[in-house]
Structures are given as structure tokens and as C-alpha cells.
Design a protein around this nucleic acid. Structure first.
Lengths: 249, 249
DNA sequence: CGGTGGCGTTCCACTCAGCGGTACGCTCTT
DNA sequence: AAGAGCGTACCGCTGAGTGGAACGCCACCG
């Protein structure tokens, strides 16, 4: 990771130094994480503040609202999100469980939306966050439809064990992907976090060949029966799929 | 606007060249909008692609998913959004009308969330979008609680006329702000777009002095009675307010 | 057709923006 | 009192960045 020869590289190193959990980082911490010289970091951070990508607070720097605003201009994710929202809404209203919308980016899942009520299941997923593909229902669905190349890449790579139930055997995972392709849905049983169950269905292009995204419903072990929501999730996903087809020929 | 002496300035000029409506812009268009030299724009855009802030397509450049992801790391708006979602959800479920969450940024409103069903009222607002303060219910509420300085700044500035009903008389607007402070809600009657009505309530810090955000419900003239949703909106806003207080002491 | 204009891309010599080591002042802790 | 860690400020060197020029490629048109 030596992109830091250009100013832009340094700037992005600083911006990306903020993990999902960090809200405000002091200059010294930025220096530590980025490996930049103190003077340089100071100056670049100052420039970023000037451009409204960072806020300077008493205790350090913070990603600013300007960045949030800019991010929401990203065309593809935005229109997908806007079109999907009503369906996610419906799905939530019908199930009253946590609903996700996710897309594939690289070999991971990125969540575009996560909606749920007050007693929301405390899940590791967050809007804008990433998760591995092999241990989430959305990930499996996306992977299942991603084509042989992607299968190979993921199945041969190391499969991180998140919980005792995470599927890390390539053979078993492959079989799950096969059935996901047949049945049109994928399940997760406490594979990304203990106590969580999940069903997901793919949002497909009308030709049925390519996946655009996936929708899932998640709930806690005990009251939650993933199977009983299978049809609802599938319905939402296919409905979104044909709406997308209508708008984007 | 001559921030374009530094690389960072040029990069941001390019990113911000994308209006809310543009999805993909060819290099030539970027050159036109930013005023950069062709060679420079080419190189900087290339660098941005390399850093996953832009995507290069057949027809030009496009804001990339990486930017979306980065934007959702912005701490303040993100936690606000996450905490607010359940309440917006409830509100939507109760009213089945378009629900907004907005904050003040500069002298404008920025929408952090917009949720609504399929028959969604076609409103000019978009998630991540901006609107003037004087012609929206959310804007009026935010302005009303923003303090005398802000009042002065907005009331003396030019008030853009968006529709025949937009309030552009400073005196009338000031009176509306007064009553908004008294009653705790603000209304909009086709002031930002024809055919749209709106009620908004402020999300306050527990001391009641400062506004954090505002919530609104919007609907079309005819079936929609803003007054009948006043209590629901106010309830959602105060509930969110006390939740925020609990989490951020 | 050959011409013309807009486009994306590549090249290159100049130069100033950016660099990072050094130094200072501040606030805590020891 | 001394030290550690922080944010800030300064400054001379240098190569990253610059933008004008030139090229090849369509698509349109007289």
C-alpha cells in the first residue's frame, strides 16, 4: 500500500484511516495509522478541512457532512437505493424484522440499507459497512449468482471463521451455493454472529443472468423462523428486479 | 472559487462537478465545468479512478461506490441516521406518507433520509440533497430554532421563489418562524413544489436550546391533511430527541 | 468521399506546490 | 522539575504536478 506518493493518495489514506467505529481521531493517531510525516499529515488534514471533507473538533478530526453528501451522489448505488426503499419498507412492515439490501463489491458484501425497528437485532452489519461473503445470507446469494470465476476466487481463498458455525469448508459452501442457485434463496444460521438467522434472495436482471443486489430478512434465534419469510423475501427481490428492468433498459 | 491551485482542490472540483442529476459525465464535460486543463483533468480523474472514488465507463466517469461507502462513515450523520431510522419507520408506518429527516448545513437543509412507499409523492427532495430553508417545513423548523444570527442571515438574503406560494416576504416568514417556535411545528403549503403539503417538528437537545435535526411528513394536496399528523410528527421528534440525549451525554 | 470538429489520450520540459526534518509551546502525568 | 505527547509553525530542497501541444479516433456533414 504505497499510494502515498501523491497528495491524493495521502488525502485518501487519511480519510480511510477512519474505521467504521472511529468517530473522531486526533492528529497523532492519523500519523500513526497512515505513516505520514507529522507536518504532512497536519497540512493535508488542514486542506481536507478546508474542502469540507473533514471537521476539526477540539479532540481531533472527524469525517464531515460534506463527505456524506458527496457519497450520496454516487449514481448507481443511489438510484438502486431509491428504487429499492419502498420494497424494503413493505418487507419490513410485513415482517417487522431487520431488513438488508446489499451489493457485491470485490469479494465482499457492502450493505446499502439496513432498516429495522427499535428492538432491532444487534447485528454486526451497518449501512455502508462490509462483510465477508461466505458467512452471510446476502453474501451467499450474491456469490451464487456471481459466476464460476468468483466462486473459485472465494472458495480457494481463506474463509474466515466468525463464529463456531461459520462454514469454512469449501465443499460444504459450494453445495450451499448450488442449492441457493436452485431454490433462489440462501440461509445463514449464526454464521456471522451468534444468535442471528437470515434469509436472502437475489435481485436479478430480467434475463436472469446477472445479480444486481440481494435482499434479506434477519432475526434472532428463538422467535425467528427464517423459512417462514422465504416467500416474502423472494417476492420483494423479484419485484425490485422487474422495477429496475422497467427503469433501466 | 479558485481553490484549484492544489491537487486536492482540482480533485474535489471534479467530484463536485457531478450535480445531483448527473450520473455519468464525459471528460470533456468535466473540463468544461471545472475549467481545468484537459491534460490535468485527465490525469486527476485517472488518479481518482485508481483510488476508487470514480468509475470509468464507456461513456465517461461516474461517482463510484467507494465514495458512497466512505460517505457513510461520516460519524455524526451516520449515528444520527441510525438512531433516527426506527422512529422514521414508525412514523411512516403510522401515516403511510413520505417521511423526511433533515439537518441544517450552512443556510440550507440537507436531507439525511427520505422514506416513503410506492405511491410516493414526487417531491423535489432526495436523500443527500439540499433545499433552501425558507420554503420547506423542515427548513422553517430548523431555522426557527437556529438563533437570531441565522434568522438575520436568511431573512436579509434573497429568498428564492420556487412556486407561486413560496413565502418571500421577510416579515411573513419571520411571523411563521415565531409561531413555529411557539407551537413546536412548522407547515409548508405548496411552497417548494406545487401540490405538496408538509408538517415538520424539531429534534431538540434535552435542554431545549439547540436543534439537532427535524422530522417531517409530506403528502399531496387533496387527501393529505397536514394538521392531522402534527401530533405524530411531534411525538417522533421528541422521542428521537430523548434517545439522542441518552446516548450522547 | 475528404474535410471538420469534438473527443480521449500521450508526451515533455519547466516550476512551484508539496515535502519532511527541525524546532517551539502547550498540557498533562510522573 | 523533568519528561512525554501533543498540535503548530518554519523553511530550503526537489520531484510531482503542470498545461500546452500534438496525435489518433470516430461521427457528422457538405
Amino acid at each position: 500500500m504505497e499510494d502515498s506518493n501523491t497528495v491524493l493518495g495521502k488525502a485518501l489514506a487519511i480519510l480511510r484511516a477512519f474505521g467504521p467505529a472511529d468517530s473522531v481521531l486526533p492528529l497523532a493517531e492519523l500519523v500513526r495509522r497512515t505513516g505520514l510525516a507529522k507536518g504532512t499529515a497536519h497540512r493535508v488534514a488542514g486542506a481536507l478541512v478546508h474542502h469540507r471533507l473533514l471537521d476539526k473538533t477540539e479532540h481531533g478530526y472527524r469525517l464531515s457532512g460534506g463527505l456524506f453528501e458527496l457519497g450520496l451522489r454516487a449514481a448507481t448505488e443511489r438510484t438502486l437505493l431509491e428504487l429499492a426503499m419502498p420494497f424494503l419498507q413493505d418487507l419490513y412492515e410485513r415482517t417487522h424484522e431487520t431488513v438488508h439490501l446489499g451489493v457485491r463489491e470485490g469479494h465482499e458484501v457492502v450493505y446499502l440499507a439496513k432498516i429495522g425497528g427499535h428492538r432491532q437485532t444487534r447485528a454486526p452489519s451497518r449501512t455502508g459497512g462490509r462483510m465477508p461473503m461466505h458467512c452471510t445470507a446476502i453474501g451467499k446469494v450474491l456469490l451464487a449468482h456471481a459466476g464460476e470465476d468468483e466462486w473459485a476466487a472465494v472458495l480457494t481463498g481463506p474463509l474466515e471463521r466468525r463464529t463456531p458455525r461459520t462454514v469454512i469448508a469449501p465443499g460444504l459452501l459450494r453445495r450451499q451455493l448450488d442449492t441457493a442457485l436452485e431454490t433462489g434463496v440462501a440461509y445463514e444460521h449464526e454464521e456471522s454472529a451468534p444468535g442471528l438467522l437470515c434469509v436472502a434472495a437475489p435481485v436479478l436482471r430480467p434475463d436472469g443472468s446477472t445479480v444486481v443486489a440481494a435482499i434479506s430478512v434477519m432475526g434472532p434465534v428463538g422467535r425467528f423462523r427464517p423459512e417462514s419469510h422465504e416467500t416474502a423475501v423472494r417476492a420483494a427481490a423479484t419485484a425490485l428486479g422487474s422495477t429496475l428492468a422497467r427503469r433501466r433498459p
